[in-house]
Design a binder for these strands. Structure first.
Lengths: 244, 244
DNA sequence: CGGCTATTTATTGTATACAGTCATTGTCTC
DNA sequence: GAGACAATGACTGTATACAATAAATAGCCG
């Protein structure tokens, strides 16, 4: 090769085979990892998410982390304050009310459409999800159960055939998980364990109105199970820790 | 100045006084500029948005542009294909149906709440917006009128007091503007010019149910005014331009 | 002359370096 | 001893440089 006149020039810093083709999926995986960690309360509301730390953990640079953080911010799972960085969103009581009101309007309104499109295969899939949720609850993994419950509601909304509304429901459910994590009672999950099974029954029978009414009560029950007391702010945990 | 030993070295790239403190507002302004350009059809569906070009136009680096593009992508105003870059979203007929179904559900469901919270000041503000919209329409600026109509619907939703649902309506209205730009008839704006005034009347009278029914008809009328024929794809505009 | 392949070019994806700002801590003064 | 101010450190905001890839074009072979 006659162009080998600059042997000192460092070669391509290709780390491994994964140049950047799989970067898309990797980013998606990291996004989901962080999202799940937030929803399952392994990252508690108020927790700071430093870019360097995340970049270090996941082995990519800050650029990719920022992208993910911005997406999470737009979904309101993390709060992005101008020069302070990112932190897990701590939902306020007002926001909680808005979210559950929105779920009332959208999810209930979707039930007739879902009932119309419900078939055997869909019902079976939903029953599987409901069973998995019960199982998680029985084995004491409440945080996991909260996420699985959200997954159930999202899948339901997707069955309506309206992708736009399903996406809205997805975001509302993520935020609901956060709200449950903050305002829910430790021992008591909002969703009664067989509520979802009953709902599937109504839907499978094609009874949209019945399902709508049931969903309304279901959501009201979850909201009613919350204790709307503001918990400690970000810092003064010390008071509580040392007993004053 | 004893440190003038390296006159060739380019100084700190501080362009002007605006180091980075006003960067927030600048980004927001650029975001709105692009968003408005899309909604007002100055950037037509399918148009490619190259990062370099945008960075050059707005005088910031690609980093900031990417951030804005990602935000627009999450709002589904631009489509981001993996290695092809960003382009203005070309809504499909299915998406259009989803969007208008979603508006039916959400905006109609919001009317009772809006009627309950409607006061004189709010009604006056809305009337001003409606008048401005009529004015734009009369002066032939149809694209501007579409955007103003969207603003009206968004403001209405904000008056419901539910910030979450108002944000959803905002996104739906942006997408609706895009849909109108693609599928609407050139001479005929979906919204009848005094529809909005009539609606304000019902709301001011506290008649939420009447307003709800009217909004439903209003949205149906807009949707019905669309001609759901797929236009030319992204490239073959040439066919149309040169008359085949 | 048409279709296929190789090269080139244009554009995005990613990392890194640098500068600015906020918070915290340490010190000095009242 | 307490409060204010200054210095230091940590973290984010932004730009730029480099590598990879897909599109476009030119060349070649059939």
């Amino acid at each position: 090769m006659s162009d080998a006149q600059a042997p000192e020039k460092r070669r391509a810093p290709v780390k491994e085979g994964k140049g950047s083709k799989e970067g898309e999926e990797r980013h998606e995986a990291i996004y989901r990892a962080v999202s799940d960690a937030i929803v399952e309360q392994r990252l508690k509301p108020g927790a700071r998410l430093r870019e360097d730390a995340l970049a270090d953990v996941f082995g990519i640079s800050r650029t990719g982390i920022r992208k993910i953080l911005q997406r999470l911010a737009l979904e309101q799972l993390v709060t992005l304050t101008p020069r302070r960085g990112a932190s897990v969103t701590r939902p306020t009581a007002d926001e909680a009310k808005d979210v559950f009101d929105a779920r009332q309007l959208i999810e209930c309104g979707l039930m007739p459409d879902v009932a119309r499109r419900m078939g055997e295969k869909e019902a079976a899939e939903l029953r599987d999800m409901a069973r998995e949720e019960r199982q998680a609850l029985r084995s004491g993994q409440q945080s996991v159960a909260i996420r699985l419950s959200a997954d159930f509601h999202v899948r339901l909304a997707q069955l309506s055939g309206n992708a736009t509304l399903a996406e809205f429901v997805e975001r509302l459910c993520s935020r609901s998980s956060l709200i449950l994590a903050v305002y829910g009672h430790p021992g008591h999950l909002g969703c009664e364990s067989h509520d979802h099974d009953d709902l599937i029954g109504y839907l499978e029978a094609g009874n949209g109105e019945r399902a709508k009414a049931f969903m309304s009560r279901h959501l009201k029950a979850i909201e009613a199970s919350l204790s709307m007391v503001e918990e400690a702010e970000s810092a003064p945990d010390l008071q509580q820790i040392f007993g004053g």
